[in-house]
Amino acid sequence: MLADALEHLVRGIVDHPDDVEVTSRTLRRGDLLEVRVNPSDLGRVIGRSGRTARALRTVIGALSASGAVRVDVVDVDRR
């Protein structure tokens, strides 16, 4: 559910919604959600001073029933 919620939230704020990909991984310390977007949308998802990424984390954290969730925005270009 959290991955779907995150994907929906991100798809709504980018220019290339079809390029949005969210993968969910279970780590020892809790869930990790990784967001990949079109490189041209990276700034949108991070926002000035990381403000948008922070808002995404706040909302996803609030929806999580099972404790802390890490949300990472992955810069595809650097991989």
């Binding site: 709504g12 704020i13 808002a55 995404l56 706040t58 909302v59």
Partner: peptide, 24 residues
């Protein structure tokens, strides 16, 4: 209530994202 959060911080975050969705 979970969409409001402590001191309305979730509400503010959701408002921010909603404004961006409108802008997009």
């Amino acid at each position: 209530n979970r969409l409001i959060g402590a001191d309305g911080e979730v509400l503010d975050a959701l408002q921010e994202l909603t404004r961006l969705a409108v802008q997009a």
